[in-house]
Design a protein around this nucleic acid. Structure first.
Length: 408
DNA sequence: CGTCCACAGGAATGACGGGCGG
DNA sequence: CCGCCCGTCATTCCTGTGGACG
């Protein structure tokens, strides 16, 4: 490709398209996306073998043990599970063993009903997304399962968020379902980021679900480098990546608890930045900018889809922070929030509700909330925003009243 | 060493929009 | 169409509690 003349701003759309078209950066960027499962998962060989060994009995018609999989985000839990199940499935097809796999993301399906409905759907029967009694959906699942005469795997990804929201009732039911089945078998694979999560579980559920346990340690920087190097071969054109780009991505992600997803995101976004500017090489500078971009995208995406009161709450937190320097207690936050609500002429929610919304923000990583005891002066929660002003502005952008608030 | 603050966070309940089977 | 049950968001009422003050 011929080099391009890059105008200082080059704001016209035509220019942008032209630059993207002629910048030969990506062969296939989808290989860097977090949901892509590669054929080769470096540094997870032992986990793959263990999981394979545990699940293999399905091939000869016995029920594999239920499994608990632990590990912080981005350690390959989901990828390895899907990889092994896929292999098992093709192996089963070749040998006449009937396998069915239901993969549930509990972050999305975080109620009894939705989990069961989704399992039914993936095993083969459509269920309305609301309207039926939970017990009815469960009955349908039992019948469906037994009629299928298969080994059924139910993967509950991020199962901790299900239990925190809806309790362990579903898990109790699902892990006990085999008693009601004569011709089929169900194995549960629970995946969790939260290492202390089993404490929330009923002991009976814990022992049933934890028949086997598998731990995924975080990747270190050099392991991340291996992963990126392997993926980059097929996703980038040769010679596009600067010498230290992969090293830098790995080092940055290693600092963030060895999150491979983060490392891949950095690499992909760095490439996209280069592409957008019509440059022919991805440099370390792109990676550094990608780091800001990745964080911004996350925040903006989450905040934009939030309901009004959550956004008002974020705004209140921001105002409080500007005024006092370091966040405030639930009571102080609530006071500011009621004021803001009045200014927006909407009715304020109760403190109880706001307390829940604060916890939600904390879970999403937008705020930091931790309970502190101030002794004689009560027990409260200290809340701080954990996003930058700049990202906040972008996130609240579509509402001019909010941005003008931030301005002053 | 007990008290008592300022909330945390659980439970019950209700309004709402929606699907179901009859 | 009805009566029923669903999930979600929100309110109301409530009990529980770490630790500085006295």
């Amino acid at each position: 490709m011929h080099p391009l003349e890059i105008g200082g701003m080059g704001s016209s759309l035509d220019d942008l398209f032209k630059r993207v078209l002629s910048a030969k950066i990506f062969v296939n960027r989808d290989l860097l996306r977090p949901d892509y499962i590669p054929e080769d998962l470096p540094h997870r060989e032992t986990q793959i073998k263990r999981l394979g060994a545990i699940l293999a009995p399905a091939l000869i018609g016995s029920r594999p043990s239920n499994i608990f999989i632990y590990g912080v985000p981005g350690t390959g839990k989901t990828a390895v599970t899907q990889y092994v199940l896929k292999k098992l499935d093709t192996e089963g097809k070749n040998n006449g063993a009937s396998l069915k796999i239901a993969f549930i993301n509990c972050k999305h399906d975080n109620t009894d009903y939705r989990v069961l409905a989704d399992v039914c759907e993936q095993v083969g029967e459509r269920v309305p997304f609301t309207g039926l009694a939970v017990s009815e959906v469960y009955k349908r699942f039992v019948k469906l399962a037994d009629d299928s005469k298969s080994s059924i795997f139910v993967v509950l990804d991020e199962v901790d968020s299900l239990v925190k929201k809806a309790g362990d009732e579903v898990l109790y039911k699902l892990t006990g379902v085999n008693k009601q089945l004569s011709r089929a078998r169900v194995s549960i694979i629970g995946i969790t980021n939260d290492l202390k999560f089993t404490e929330y579980l009923d002991p009976r559920v814990r022992s049933r679900l934890g028949e086997e346990e598998l731990v995924f340690p975080p990747y270190n920087a050099s392991e991340l480098e291996d992963i990126l190097r392997k993926r980059s071969v097929a996703s980038f054109y040769k010679g596009v990546l600067g010498a230290e780009v992969i090293k830098l991505c790995s080092a940055l992600a290693a600092k963030e608890h060895g999150d491979a997803r983060r490392a891949l995101d950095l690499l992909r976004v760095a490439g996209e930045l280069a592409e957008r500017n019509g440059e022919l090489k991805v440099t370390e500078d792109h990676v550094r900018r990608a780091q800001k971009e990745v964080e911004k995208d996350r925040v903006v995406e989450v905040v934009k889809t939030m309901p009004l009161h959550s956004r008002l709450l974020i705004l209140s937190l921001h105002l409080l922070e500007k005024q006092s320097g370091n966040g405030g207690t639930t009571g102080e936050v609530y006071e500011v929030y009621t004021g803001v609500s009045k200014n927006f002429s909407v009715e304020a929610l109760t403190q109880r509700r706001i307390s829940d919304l604060i916890n939600e923000l904390d879970m999403l990583g937008i705020a930091n909330a931790r309970v502190v005891s101030k002794g004689r002066y009560g027990r409260t929660k200290l809340v701080r925003l954990s996003i930058s002003d700049r990202n906040l502005r972008d996130a609240l952008q579509e509402d001019s009243r909010m941005t003008s608030y931030i301005g002053k």
